[in-house]
Simulated assay, not measured.
Amino acid sequence: MMRTAPWMMAVVLAGAPAFAAQPQAPCGGLRFESGRMVFGRPLAPQGAETDACLAHVAQAVLARPAIRSVTVAAKLPDADRLDGRGLAAAKRAADVLVAAGVPRTRVSAMAPPSVEGEPAQLQFAYVERPAQPAVARLRAASGEVEAGATEAQLLARTVGDSLYPGELLRTGADAQAELALADGSTARVVENSLIKMGTIALMANLQRKVQLDLLRGTVETNAAPGGADSIFEVRTRGAVAGVRGTRFRVSAQDDGTSRLETLEGMVALSAEQAEVEVAGGHGSRAKLGSPPEPPRPLLPAPTLVGPRGGAFAAPPKVSWRTLEGAATYRVEVARTADFAAGVQTYDTESAELALPGPRQGKWFWRVMAVDGDGFVGFPSKIYAFDVQP
C-alpha cells in the first residue's frame, strides 16, 4: 500500500501484449478538421475503394468517443441528384458505416447541390460533443503516434487531438508524444510505448486523482502541484511507485521488470509487500515477483564536446567526454529545443556518433549515459547546429 503524503504520485508498472501492425489508411489519408473529414483524394460515390475507405471512416469515428453524429453528403451532378440517385448514394454510404458498427441513430444522409465542374463525390461532416471530459490533449507529436478505444481501432492522431478515459495511445519506432493532462501535468511518452488513459478527477482545495496505465515502454512525467491527499498513479504490472516529487521516468520491460529513475523529488517504489524510497538522482527496479532493489545513483549528465553551434555542409559528427560507469550512450536529435518535434534517438557504445543523413536546417542534440542495467542518467546540456548543403 502507498503511504499517504500531501502530494502523492503512484506508478504501477506492467508488461504489454504483442501489438499487431496497422494497415495503411485506404482513403489516401484522413483528418478531422473543425467538423469536416478531409480525405487525401476525392471519394467516389461507390466502388470497392470507396467501401474500403468507408470502413476506415467507421473505425476512425468509433475511435473518437467525442463524435456524436456523422452526416454523409453525396454531391452528384443535378441530373443524377434530382432523380434520387444522389440521396440513394448517400444512404448506401451511411449503411456501410452502420454495418461497420457506427450507431444508426448517429448517421444521416443528404444530397446537396454540387458545384459545376466538381467531380461526383462523397463528403462527410461530424458533430463533436464529448460524452465525458477529455483527460489529456496531444500537445506535441513526432513520428507514428496512434490512439483509439481498442488495439484494433488505433489510428493516427495529430497535435491538438483530445484523449478520453479508456483510450490507448501508442508510439512507434523513433516516435514520441507529449501529453498535456487535464490537471496541468505533462507526460512524455517515448518511442515503442503503449499507455492507457485513465481518469482525472479534479476536486476542491486543489485535490486531484490522476490515473494512467503504462502497458509498455517508458513515460516521463512532470507533475503539477496538487492539494493535500492528491494522488497521481501510473500503473503497470510489476510494481507501484508513489511519487512525492515532480519529475520521474518509469519503464515497463517485456519481461515484467519495472524500472524507476527519479530526476526530482522522492519516489516510493513498492512490490511484493516491500518498499524503498528513491530520492532524486537515484533509480531502482523491481523484477517481476521480486521486491524492489536498493536505490542506486543515476549517472550524471555527460559533458558535450561539440558541435556547440555552427553551420555544416553535411550532418556533423557529435562527440562528448566518456563517463565512468556508462555502458552505452543515448543521443537524441530533434527539431525543437524542447525535444517535442522530429526526435531521433541513437544508442552507441562510443563517445561519438556520425549522424546519418540526409538532414537539413537547424537541429538540437543532447546525450544521456546508460549504465549496464539500463538505467538512464541525467540529460546533458542542449546544443544546436545547422546543416546547409
Rank of each mutant, 00 (worst) to 15 (best):
F124S: 08
K91T: 13
K209W: 03
G280K: 01
E128M: 06
K287Y: 05
F375K: 01
G377E: 08
G242A: 15
S34F: 06
T158W: 05
A271F: 08
V210C: 03
A16I: 01
G372I: 02
A271H: 06
A52G: 04
L212R: 10
V243S: 06
I195F: 06
G226L: 12
R296D: 00
T50G: 09
P26A: 06
D174L: 11
D83M: 09
V250D: 00
L138G: 05
V305Y: 00
S350G: 02
P292E: 09
P316M: 03
S108V: 07
A55S: 10
E264F: 06
A94E: 10
A175P: 08
G226W: 11
A149K: 11
G280F: 05
P316F: 04
V240Q: 13
T345N: 01
G377A: 03
P389H: 02
R188T: 12
Q22G: 00
L43A: 04
S270G: 09
T336M: 01
W7Q: 14
V159D: 08
L260G: 02
R247Q: 11
D80P: 00
A327S: 13
G117R: 07
V189S: 07
M1Q: 11
L269R: 00
S290Y: 13
P300I: 12
G306V: 10
A125L: 11
G227T: 10
P225R: 09
G166F: 07
R335M: 05
V11W: 05
A63C: 05
P292M: 05
E146W: 07
T257P: 08
L214D: 10
R296G: 03
D213K: 12
V243D: 11
P45T: 09
A136M: 04
V243C: 02
E191A: 15
S230C: 02
H56L: 01
G289W: 02
L214G: 09
V333T: 04
V38E: 13
F232L: 12
G217A: 07
R106V: 03
P165S: 08
G28P: 08
G265Y: 06
Q24V: 14
L43E: 10
R106E: 13
E220D: 10
Y383I: 01
S290A: 15
R85G: 01
A149V: 15
S108A: 14
V12T: 13
Q59V: 14
D338S: 12
F232R: 10
D347Q: 13
N222C: 01
Q22E: 10
L169I: 14
A14G: 15
A10F: 00
P294A: 13
M197R: 03
S69F: 01
D161W: 03
Y126R: 07
A241V: 14
P6M: 11
A18C: 00
V267E: 07
L212S: 05
P291D: 11
D213E: 15
R139T: 01
F385Y: 15
R308A: 07
A58G: 00
T50E: 09
P292V: 06
A5H: 15
A99S: 12
T236F: 04
A120M: 11
E275Q: 15
L13R: 07
Q211F: 09
G148W: 09
A326G: 07
G309E: 09
P316H: 02
A354Q: 15
R36F: 04
L212G: 02
F124H: 10
R106T: 14
E220F: 04
E261S: 15
L163Y: 05
E293S: 13
G166Q: 03
P165L: 04
S34G: 02
W363L: 14
R296M: 13
A351M: 02
